[in-house]
Simulated scan of single mutants.
Amino acid sequence: MTVAVSGANGFTGRFVCAELQRRKIPFVALLRPGSDVSWMAAREIPVRFADLTESHQLAEHLRGCRALLNVASIGFGAAPSILQACHSAGVRRAVFVSTTAIFTQLNAGSKTVRQAAEAAILASGLQTTILRPTMIYGTPGDRNMIRLVQWINRWPVLPVFGNGRSFQQPVHVTDVAWSVVQALESPATIQRQFNISGAEPLTYNEVVRITAQALGRRTRRLHIPAQPVVSLLNFTEGLGITLPVKAEQILRLNEDKAFRHAEAQETFGYAPIAFQEGIRQEVSLFRAGRDGLSD
């Protein structure tokens, strides 16, 4: 019996597909209608099209599957539909990817949606596992660390809003993908939730320093008091003016985001790579113009 992967076309989802192929686990990708499937055709990945908010449609495509790996974001309100589809299709086992952002102290718009989704998953009666990655990075397609890589590669000075001492714990995308599949194959993860974080917490200043070293660049950090900038951005956002940086992003940068992954290590052998190694890999792919999935 095959495994269904929702969100298979996303950044993390593509690596989950690669991990399933590496382990020779049969699976099918669930994609939104109209998605580009050219890369999947090249890798001979079977595809089914379904809207995750349409439970009846989704259930039809889940029939005959032994499990669901839901890598698609649960921050858009589709969790109840997905759970209903699993019940209708007789899929009892599911692994859901959430995020450690549910623990933020900020009033992020998606926080309550994700918390409600997790509550629904836990109360669903299915055999579920919830994985909560920290900030995911690893290739030029990550939309996170690549922005810092590009800036440091181009400019000798980096503006830092705040003192740069808040903790970050980026996790490599291959570690997340491995965890998703390993959790599926580990019965001890059923009815459990796990934080999936990088090897160790680092201050933002350390992240900048290590990234600059990987690039072979000298970078001077220009620290700018965060609160005046946040106030200014809140004002401009209230006027409907869109700027490249949002107030919430600066507040998040100055919030500690260090999370222990000891439970994942003890339960299913999770052992993430060090940030120094992960960012070296990303820099190498960045310079080679590769996506990390072509090998």
Rank of each mutant, 00 (worst) to 15 (best):
N153A: 15
A188M: 08
E118T: 05
E118M: 05
Q193S: 15
C86P: 13
D175G: 11
G75L: 00
F96Q: 09
S166V: 04
H87P: 14
G109T: 07
C65E: 10
Q127M: 09
T128I: 08
L83W: 00
L158Q: 09
V181H: 07
I190G: 11
L69I: 09
N163P: 14
A117S: 14
G141H: 08
R66L: 11
V173F: 02
S124R: 05
R93G: 14
V95P: 15
P187F: 01
T100H: 04
A188S: 14
F96S: 10
G77P: 12
I130D: 06
N70F: 03
Q105W: 00
V176F: 05
V180D: 09
F76H: 12
S166P: 12
L68P: 14
V95L: 07
S81H: 12
S179Y: 05
V97R: 01
Q84I: 06
G141L: 10
G64Q: 04
T99L: 02
L122A: 15
I136K: 06
V157P: 11
I102P: 12
Q115A: 07
L106F: 04
I130R: 05
I136M: 08
D175M: 03
Q84Y: 00
G162Y: 00
S179Q: 10
V95A: 09
G90C: 05
V171P: 15
T174M: 11
L122G: 10
A116W: 00
L184W: 05
G162R: 02
S179K: 04
P80S: 07
A117V: 04
G77V: 01
L126C: 10
S124G: 11
I146A: 08
V181Y: 02
S110C: 07
W151A: 15
P156W: 01
G75S: 07
E185M: 14
R192D: 06
